[in-house]
Design a protein around this nucleic acid. Structure first.
Lengths: 118, 118
DNA sequence: CTCTATATATATCATTTTCGATAATTGAAA
DNA sequence: TTTCAATTATCGAAAATGATATATATAGAG
């Protein structure tokens, strides 16, 4: 029954996923997610890995938290973040797969100097 | 440099992908991409499938075009769009896989096992 | 060729959201 | 208290968005 069209349901789901993507659609937040693929990281570590300004980083982490994508754990002075959503992990892997580093970075493919400048 | 994760290069790539995600991070544009996974569609068909207002739809299609995600082909009065980027197709499939319809809620388009219910 | 209808695109406006930068704040430990 | 780690607050500029109006392109009728 194509009539009882789950139009509303499809759109609802689309809105959810779009919201997810929106959260990831910022370079810094995307880098954060990438970084967390390898496991738990402290804010300082993330800061170093992404090069983001610390207050902005904190705000971005808050967004990821609010979206339910990561969880935070405090250990004395530091706060450690890790990925929470398995679907996100799957998505991240898919993205690394599709848009990931050029073959040369990890896999010897050819003498194709890709030029790591500077 | 074995761990030559050049900040600038990584960030550059992150910016590209983030830009991609941003383009997809709107319910209507996401639905457009979903719709185009099944093949070429005219604007009117997309309009019907997404329920988007026509001028906004046109603007969204323009964004997808500018991002290089789709191509347009005019045939008399109608304009047909289709996915252009193979990486996007891969990503869309991954997303359908991860966030796709719940196993029981609505019949999958094909009668194939589609839910990995781990 | 002009008139009309259809299909799509572009323009504009008001409102909201986002972002980088900076300042102030909280929390834990020495 | 002082210091380190992280969060929250705020400001202004830029971008996104829905709604609405207008424009272009193509085709068919008269």
């Amino acid at each position: 029954m194509k009539d009882g069209l789950d139009f509303s349901e499809v759109r609802e789901r689309a809105a959810e996923v779009a919201s997810l993507l929106k959260t990831l659609s910022h370079p810094n937040r995307l880098l954060i997610a990438c970084e967390l693929m390898d496991g738990e990281r402290s804010v300082s570590e993330i800061e170093a890995a992404t090069g983001a300004a610390q207050p902005n980083l904190s705000r971005d982490l808050a967004r990821l938290r609010e979206q339910g994508l990561v969880t935070a754990r405090r250990q004395s002075k530091q706060v450690f973040y890790k990925l929470k959503d398995a679907r996100l992990e799957a998505l991240m892997h898919a993205m690394c797969d599709a848009f990931g580093p050029k073959p040369a970075t990890h896999a010897p493919r050819a003498a194709q100097t890709q030029g790591a400048k500077r």
